[in-house]
Each structure stands twice: as structure tokens, then as C-alpha cells.
């Protein structure tokens, strides 16, 4: 069966009732690639793209609330550097017009650019159930293992919240790919600095999950970003990540790039220090 509810509440109802027997589809930019490669869906399909309010961006209580169906094309327009740049680096316009933040988080690819940027922003994800209501999880607690997340079989991703966009001082993004556009990252990095001085740093393609470099972050807290500290942080990031060798890149390279990118995004935070984000 193919379901195409026109409200998100109806979608939640269907998901709660059918659990694993129904597969949500948003932009289809992950799901249909698999379908075209011969992986049958095997289950009923729950199309979320007709649901009203699934593509909204709202401001509430000093937070920015993104509906799950917010596309990369919408994210590109945001005034949050790391998220906008990450979104702009996803596929081509055709993919950005369809691909959604919920799809990115649900797929939970270690190379998920949206996921990495949101991790650095210390975002929270809302997992919703028709009867149990919703639960908010920090993204750092959401990604569990390779393509495994806290998302339940009977839940949908309803929203993502960036807790304090007004408290955000600066953010930065860097992605290394093999060509000038439409890249799966070899390594990507995002960093954010909040007004309270907190710095978050996240990497993609260097671990089974999009990862926060918590150890490195610890080094940075409350310290002025001197050259010496940047160097130390770069080394720490490189030591902290757990990349694998695959034919796209070796673990050595990825580790080395974490050091380079850590320094770059952190430096970027400094130069953008004065920038006031809305």
C-alpha cells in the first residue's frame, strides 16, 4: 500500500499502527536510489510530502524549529553558516530541492552533511509517536552505531531544534570531496561557537556515525583560541576520530584531514567572531 496523508498527525497515526511494516519516504533521495538498485521496498510506503506543515521553519522561544521535511534548498537560505554551507554542498539543486533533514538524520550515513552540521550546532531532534507523544533528544545521543539511531520503528522525525540560534556567535563548515560539486565527503567538519563561549566540533566520514569530537571540545572550553591551542586541538581531533580504510580514502588520510579541518573550522570561528547571527 501507498499512503499519502495530508497531515503529519495522520502520518504519525499510520506509523504508530504499522510500525516497521510501513516505510516513510520524504524526498526519496536515499530511498529511491536503493529501489533503483534493485532493493525492493518490501513494505508499505508512507509518503510524507503531502503533509501540511512538514516543510516549515519556525522561530519559537529563541529557538529555530525546522520541520522534518525541510529541504536542503530551504536550509541553504538560512543565516547559519555551517548549516547553510553544508546544505549547499549536498548533491545538485535537484537533490537539494527534494532531500530533507529528516531523511538525512534517519539514513544516518556517517557522511551525512546535514547531520554533521546539526551536531556541531548541538541540535535536538524530535521523535514523535501518535500516542506516546514526542521526545526530544540531543543529536549527540541520537546516533548510536553504524546507521543505527534512537528512532523507534513506530516513530517519525517531526522536528529539529537548534536550541539557541541567537546565542550562536559563529559557525563554520569544510568538506573535502574528489570534485567541485556533488560530493560524498572524504571528510567534513563543522564547528560552532556559542555566546557562552562553548565550542562544538563535529566530523563526518571518520567514524561509524556522524560524530562530535567531545574530547577535543573539552580542550577548547573557556580557552582563548591561540595558535598553540589550535595545534593541540587539531592533534586531539585526529586522535579522537575512528576512520576506516575504504576505497574512497584511507584511514590515515582521514585522520590527517581531521587535524587540518579542525584547525580550519576553528580558525574560521575566530575570524567570524564578531558576526551576529539572527
Amino acid at each position: 500500500m501507498f499512503y499519502r496523508p495530508d497531515t503529519f498527525a495522520a502520518a504519525l497515526r499510520l506509523k504508530a499502527d504499522h510500525a516497521a511494516a510501513i516505510k516513510p519516504i520524504s524526498g526519496g533521495t536515499d530511498l529511491v536510489v536503493g529501489l533503483n538498485r534493485g532493493q525492493s521496498l518490501g513494505v508499505d510506503v508512507l509518503d510524507l510530502t503531502a503533509a501540511k506543515d512538514y516543510r516549515r521553519i519556525d522561530h519559537a522561544d529563541g529557538s529555530l524549529i525546522l520541520s522534518g521535511g525541510t529541504t536542503f534548498a530551504q536550509l541553504e537560505q538560512l543565516d547559519i553558516a555551517c548549516l547553510a554551507r553544508a546544505a549547499a554542498s549536498v548533491g545538485g539543486p535537484q537533490i537539494r530541492n527534494r532531500g530533507t533533514i529528516a531523511g538525512n538524520l534517519a539514513t544516518a550515513s556517517p557522511a551525512g552533511d546535514g547531520s554533521v552540521a546539526l551536531l556541531a550546532l548541538d541540535a535536538e531532534v524530535e521523535l514523535a509517536h501518535a500516542d506516546r507523544g514526542t521526545r526530544w533528544l540531543r543529536l549527540i545521543d541520537y546516533f548510536e552505531d553504524y546507521r543505527q539511531t534512537a528512532l523507534g520503528d513506530d516513530e517519525l522525525i517531526s522536528h529539529v531544534r537548534i536550541p539557541t540560534p541567537s546565542a550562536l556567535q559563529a559557525s563554520a563548515w569544510y568538506k573535502i570531496g574528489k570534485r567541485g560539486a556533488v560530493n560524498i565527503s572524504l571528510v567534513c567538519a563543522a564547528a560552532a561557537r556559542f555566546l557562552d563561549g562553548r565550542i562544538c566540533l563535529a566530523f563526518g566520514s571518520v567514524a561509524p556515525i556522524p560524530m562530535r569530537a567531545v574530547q577535543t571540545e573539552k580542550l577548547l572550553q573557556g580557552q582563548p583560541l591561540t595558535g598553540a591551542l589550535l595545534h593541540q586541538a587539531a592533534q586531539a581531533a585526529s586522535a579522537e576520530v575512528k576512520p576506516i580504510d575504504d576505497w574512497r580514502a584511507s584511514a590515515d588520510y582521514r585522520k590527517a584531514m581531521c587535524a587540518v579541518l579542525a584547525r580550519r573550522v576553528l580558525e574560521q570561528l575566530q575570524t567570524d567572531d564578531e558576526r551576529q547571527m539572527p
Binding site: 536510489v33 570534485r179 567541485g180 560539486a181
Partner: peptide, 11 residues
């Protein structure tokens, strides 16, 4: 084409 990559206009 995801993995055998060709130059895009940006290359």
C-alpha cells in the same frame, strides 16, 4: 555514477 565520478561544471 555515485562512485565513478565525472567532472561537473564546477571542475
Amino acid at each position: 555514477f555515485t562512485d565513478y565520478i565525472l567532472p561537473t561544471i564546477k571542475d
